[in-house]
Design a protein around this nucleic acid. Sequence first.
DNA 1: GCAAAAGTGTTCAGCTTACACCCATGG
DNA 2: CCATGGGTGTAAGCTGAACACTTTTGC
Lengths: 224, 224
Amino acid sequence: MSRRPETRVTVDIVIFALREWELQVLLIQRGVPPFEGEWALPGGFVLHEESLEAAARRELEEEAGVRDVYLEQLYTFGDPDRDPRGRVITVAYYALLTTEVAPLVAGTDAGAARWMPARTHPPLAFDHERIVDYALERLANKLEYTTVGFKLLPKKFTLGQLQRVYEAVLGRPLDKRNFRRRMALLGVLTPLDEWVQDGPARPAQLFRFSARRGQSRTGGRRSP
Amino acid sequence: MSRRPETRVTVDIVIFALREWELQVLLIQRGVPPFEGEWALPGGFVLHEESLEAAARRELEEEAGVRDVYLEQLYTFGDPDRDPRGRVITVAYYALLTTEVAPLVAGTDAGAARWMPARTHPPLAFDHERIVDYALERLANKLEYTTVGFKLLPKKFTLGQLQRVYEAVLGRPLDKRNFRRRMALLGVLTPLDEWVQDGPARPAQLFRFSARRGQSRTGGRRSP
DNA sequence: GCAAAAGTGTTCAGCTTACACCCATGG
DNA sequence: CCATGGGTGTAAGCTGAACACTTTTGC
């Protein structure tokens, strides 16, 4: 009885976080062939009885040690030759880590896992470059018509920090007054009675995000 | 040696076309269990050596008899219990048929394949309702910032027909003058020296679509 | 006092929306 | 002559982009 060649399904995750106000992605250095020694996205096989999102969340916990983060399906890549080991179809996700949980990620700067700038990183294994590029594009687009941006910040933040998030993701500077007006118009910012200092300058007011009922464009669907 | 339970991958396609200026989808009546006798999306298993898009195009040809149509990946559905036969992950696509090729589709009104209104159709097998709903939502969104709408029309069309496409997809009436100005501003309409009559009324000028170089938002990516 | 970031309004252009009438044709 | 869809302009409101100075603090 000839065994049919098997198709396997993986999830790969583009994990974004801000580090020193730069948008970075978490990459893993491969310890085994193929692409041994090269950098790749965290990911792994989908277990038989788990949903795709559950697989992605399991990998997030196993490889980055985080849970309850923003996660969204990106695209499914299935070219027959994308993995030299055989037929592997991957469902790509992207995740957004708040600045509170990002530092907790294992191997932050040593070991097999490492944060790298999202736009300038070493060549990646498999077709992972394409996946990162697409995730960047999706994230930048969603920033314009949703409130995903807040998922990269801590619970309390200043308007300057919020603007730096937008600038880091979009990759271009924004006008301070226009930006603040636009955010105010969104109606999702609650000012707090707290002020903090960022540098040797005037203290800035803290705000928190509060999604509006009925218009919770909190970042789009997790699944349709 | 215990055989690991296998995960299989399918593609399912929401095939849209306009019929009598109504947005319809092509459905297949299942001849075998599960869901025997119920309506479902056309689709099938991904072969071992073909890409996901190739699988979708093969199904389009096998089940609808069409090729060279607009096709875009939608989302991947992978809940463990979405198919009673076992673990089946499906990569959903949607396709847009021009009014020229739509009538050629097999079993147009008899047999196992049938066009049904996209918004009011019988209950569907598996999780196919969700897929159709999501495809409708995606299509309506893309109509607003791309030129996918033209993919549902013949090469030559009148402005009235173009407007009916938009109204059918968006599900609401549009203002004629505003619509025509907006289309003109897009700069993708080439007027022809031909006029046709739609009904017992004044003849309408024909136009053709011509994508502009450098801004070919022709409907978005087929793959990132 | 100087460097650094916070905070704050106005103007202009372009786009979207609302809205009504005459025209050409077939029956 | 009437029903049907084709074709056309204008005014008001809204949105996005450009743009500069004062304030508060640490050093």
